[in-house]
Design a protein around this nucleic acid. Structure first.
Length: 873
RNA sequence: GGGCGAUUAGCUCAGCUGGUUUAGAGCGUCUGCCUUACAAGCAGAGGGUCUGCGGUUCGAAUCCGUAAUCGCCCACCA
């Protein structure tokens, strides 16, 4: 019959078409007179590999981009990667360690060479993987945050902010990652609840060694850095301590008692040990009371010389050891179980150490204002809108941003220190020298005298410019591309980077480009397994996306993940969803096989086919309208479901069944052409979701020139649909279902034609279709149902199928009685409502009218049921 | 400790400003079919006191209050 296999095999198809699209440059965009539609990809880590989160995220972006393209917009999806300072540097350090090379034995230049080698080796793998998914990115625009232009943009922006006075350098308490050996921003610290202990330690009173007070702490090792003990001045228990000093246990240091109402009287013992160097609050107390600050830790979390004891030991080992030693010295009052929150590094998971250090910061308060306003007023729309609350809260409590990282991999801070103190900020060395000479008045300075800050900038200090710098909007704001593509249209990202990235991009957009970076932000959910657990390497519950594609095909996986991704919810992923996607591909494939197998002849169009064409035309229109509406609200999975049902239920199960010619018979040309047209439209509607199979089948529909693609075919846009024919067809479906039920109950095969008797009001428009779908010999209008007929009711019309000898009166009675009971109850309900004077008086007329109609319909139906019952008896 | 969101069929979710909803969908389940497009399929069926309690209203899954459970964000109680 035809050469197509009964099962769709995505393997050859996908590679073939991706190559075709690439070869013809179909993803590439250049500014032109069309309306732009722009998305910038959330840049994955340059050395990362594709995981389920990327799959979800990029499938959504691809759907949006492909749809925009088919709506005639100039769609541009810019891909790229992020240098991911901390994690990339960590990977390189680890790799070097394997080779027996220590980072500190290398010069900065040597290390960077290794890092670049690593980047070139693994960089961009993830972008290649995106291609198997079908991502229609404009690969010619692929960018990397450390590309020359983007790097220059970062430096330019640093200079601008510095000149404005919004970047400063200073000693502050920062979050220190002892594993990555760098400072972190507040956002990079994740607090986790941990089961720990509250240790109650005895501090003897100086000069009165029999007396002691008890201090509660979760971190006994930090007593090495204690420089005071604080109590609440209103705490009567400790009034006697005023002006006294206590001895830090084991350490033997005498420290003052200070009184401050910062201390909660009812927490612990009401005595707080003060370690200004290792706790933010203690630091605050230290400043207030001029306490010395003893930094007892080395950068890697071991005890420093200043600690005086346990020097070189790791902080967690010390915690155990010091407790043993304290117990031995009888300085422990008790140990309680205690749950507290401990900050961990987002990248390395190391326990964060608050540490006093010199870092660079951005003042955020002023910068945040326009960014807050934009989201508040929906000038930038968040979908789902619940994220507005989270955003607002963060933005109104925004803190200064620590942007320096003690790393080599990244954008080096453009500050140069002068030989006699002080520094200059400049865009490059030459400029730095000029500024240095100007600042010092010392014309003899040379480059060799200047020392550039060794630190790098936070990765997000480059990615916050992404939508601007990709189009070179920092260095050349008047360029054609920037003016055309910016602001971008939609941003699709995960909610966990709302502060890291989204908020900062909005800030940067207004500050450096004078306009918002995007119009809409669509926040995806987090991909979880079907038990609701986050996917993670350690749990091993994260499927490999490439294996899924191998198994189900890219279209199947795309559909699977989208089916599971209702807007604003986490995704409970399960392989069976991809299976559903794969099955759908097969359904599409086989529908096409059916149509393609038909022989077309110059014969008259059957009335049933004409009706079906008319109906499906209307149905297609109404669904196109629905899809448009849903996509506008980013209700992508619902839009997909609407197209899915249109194809499977309406087109395959009804339309094709109606027009299907008898086996071996040809189809008329009018119907055939209409069917191909419908199929074309359906493929277009499906294309954004399932790009490969739709392209594959589309090529068979019409002759096309090399380089043409469904990617650029016009997306059907809904127009007003004929509501009556849609409603009529729904009635028809019910009627056919009634006949099918009788066939099933009486075990009458579909091949055996039946007579259908009709009693009551009816519309004969669909008779031709009814005859075909029911396999009827005739439709007969009767006054009374034949006693030997089996009946069913649609609306207020009683249909019956005469069945000599096959009728089971008991069954018929039972069926009718069930209906009778249901509608009697229903009618009672409606009547009760209508009998309520206050309802009739207060409810809008339309609502009352509806109730009256319900009543009339129910009465009619009951009458029909009663006559049917009477006839049976 | 503050704030936000959720709770609707076995599962995942729609149900927008109360009344065309007599609570829907997809998947799964059950029953019958290998009917020459597709068993990755076809035809049917069952399944819910809309988390509990109270209130507003002629009318509540929908609005208000309250409790429970779950989730998320934020926060310097050691």
């Amino acid at each position: 019959m035809n050469e197509l296999a009964t099962k769709y095999d995505p393997r050859d198809v996908e590679d073939k078409w991706y190559a075709y699209w690439m070869e013809h440059g179909l993803f590439h965009s250049e500014p032109d007179e069309r309306e732009p539609y722009t998305i910038v990809i959330p840049p994955p880590n340059v050395t990362g590999v594709l995981h389920m989160g990327h799959m979800l995220n990029n499938t959504i972006q691809d759907i949006l981009v492909r749809r925009a393209r088919m709506l005639g917009k100039n769609a541009c999806w810019v891909p790229g990667t992020d240098h991911a300072a901390i994690s990339t540097e960590a990977k390189v350090v680890a790799k070097l360690a394997e080779e027996g090379i220590k980072k500190q034995d290398l010069s900065r230049e040597e290390f960077l060479k290794h890092a670049w080698d690593w980047t070139h080796k693994y960089g961009g793998i993830i972008l290649k993987q995106l291609r198997t998914l079908g991502a229609s990115c404009d690969w010619e625009r692929t960018a990397f945050t450390m590309d020359e232009k983007l790097s220059k943009s970062v430096i330019r922006v640093f200079n601008k902010l510095y000149e404005k006075g919004w970047i400063y350098r200073g000693v502050r308490m920062v979050n220190w990652d002892p594993k990555a050996l760098t400072a972190l921003s507040d956002e990079e610290v994740i607090y986790k609840e941990e089961q720990s202990h509250l240790f109650h330690l005895r501090y003897k009173v100086e000069g009165d060694e029999d007396k002691y007070i008890v201090v509660a702490t979760t971190r006994p090792e930090t007593i090495l850095g204690d420089t005071a003990v604080c109590v609440n001045p209103n705490d009567e228990r400790y009034g006697w301590l005023k002006g006294k000093r206590v001895i830090v246990p084991l350490v033997g240091r005498s420290v003052p008692i200070i009184m401050d109402d910062y201390v909660e009287m009812d927490f612990g013992t009401g005595c707080l040990k003060v370690t200004p160097a290792h706790d933010v609050n203690d630091y605050m107390l230290g400043e207030k009371y001029n306490l010395p600050s003893i930094d007892i830790f080395n950068d890697n979390g071991t005890i420093s010389e200043a600690g005086g004891m346990y020097v070189g030991m790791d902080r967690f080992d010390v915690r155990k050891q010091i407790m043993e030693d304290l117990k031995a010295a009888d300085l422990v009052e008790k140990v309680e179980d205690y749950v507290n929150k401990v900050g961990h590094s987002e990248r390395t998971d190391a326990v964060i150490e608050p540490k006093l250090s010199m870092q660079w910061f951005v003042k955020m308060e002023e910068l945040a204002k326009p960014a807050l306003n934009a989201v508040e007023t929906d000038d930038i729309k968040f979908v789902p809108s619940k994220f507005k609350n989270i955003y607002r809260h963060w933005m109104t409590n925004i803190k200064d941003w620590c942007i320096s990282r003690q790393l080599w991999w990244g954008h080096r801070i453009p500050a140069w220190y002068l030989p006699k103190g002080g520094y200059v900020v400049a865009e490059n060395e030459e400029e730095a020298l000029l500024k240095a000479i100007e600042k010092t008045g010392d014309g003899s300075l040379t480059l060799a005298d200047l020392k550039q800050d060794p630190d790098c900038l936070d990765t997000w200090f480059s990615s916050w410019l992404w939508p601007v710098s990709l189009f070179n909007g920092i260095l050349d704001p008047d360029n054609r591309e920037f003016k055309y593509y910016y602001p971008t249209t939609d941003l699709v990202t995960a909610p966990d980077i709302i502060f890291f990235w989204v908020a900062r991009m909005i800030i940067a957009g207004y500050e450096f480009a004078g306009d918002k970076p995007f119009n809409n932000v669509y926040f995806t959910g987090i991909v979880r397994d079907k038990l609701g657990r986050k996917m993670s390497k350690s749990l091993g519950n994260s499927p490999d996306p490439l294996e899924l594609i191998e198994k189900f095909g890219a279209d199947g996986v795309r559909m699977g993940i989208m089916l599971a991704a209702p807007a604003g919810h986490d995704i409970m992923y399960d392989d069976s969803l991809c299976e559903q996607g794969r099955n759908f591909c097969n359904k599409i494939w086989n529908s096409f096989r059916l149509i393609k197998g038909w022989e077309v002849a110059d014969i008259e169009q059957p009335a049933s086919s004409a009706k079906a064409v008319e109906w499906f035309e209307a149905k297609l229109q109404s669904i196109a309208t629905e899809v448009e509406d849903l996509m506008g609200k980013f209700r992508i999975s619902e839009a997909l479901m609407a197209v899915y049902k249109l194809f499977w239920d309406e087109f395959s199960a009804w339309y094709l069944e109606v027009i299907k010619p008898a086996y071996g018979s040809p189809v008329d040309k009018a119907t055939y052409d209409a069917t191909l047209r419908f199929f074309d439209m359906l493929l277009r509607m499906l294309h954004p979701f399932m790009p490969f199979i739709t392209e594959e089948l589309w090529q068979h529909l019409a002759e096309r020139k090399d380089g043409e693609s469904i990617m650029y075919a016009k997306m059907p846009v809904g127009t007003e649909a004929d509501a009556k024919i849609i409603a009529d067809f729904e009635t028809l479906k019910e009627t056919v279902a009634g006949i099918r039920t009788i066939r099933k109950q009486k075990q009458i095969p579909q091949k055996e034609a039946l007579e259908l008797d009709v009693k009551g009001p009816r519309n004969a428009d669909m008779d031709s279709v009814l005859t075909k779908m029911g396999n009827l010999t005739a439709i007969v209008e009767v006054e009374e149902k034949k006693p030997t007929a089996s009946a069913f009711i649609v609306g207020a019309t009683e249909y019956s199928v005469p069945l000599e000898g096959k009728i089971n009166v008991e069954e018929e009675l039972a069926k009718l009685n069930k209906d009778l009971e249901y509608y009697t109850k229903f009618l009672a309900g409606v009547e009760k409502k209508l009998a309520n004077e206050r309802f009739v008086a207060n409810a809008p007329e339309a609502v009352v009218a509806v109730e009256r109609k319900k009543k009339a319909d129910a009465e009619e139906k009951l009458a029909a049921i009663r006559t049917a019952l009477a006839a049976l008896k």
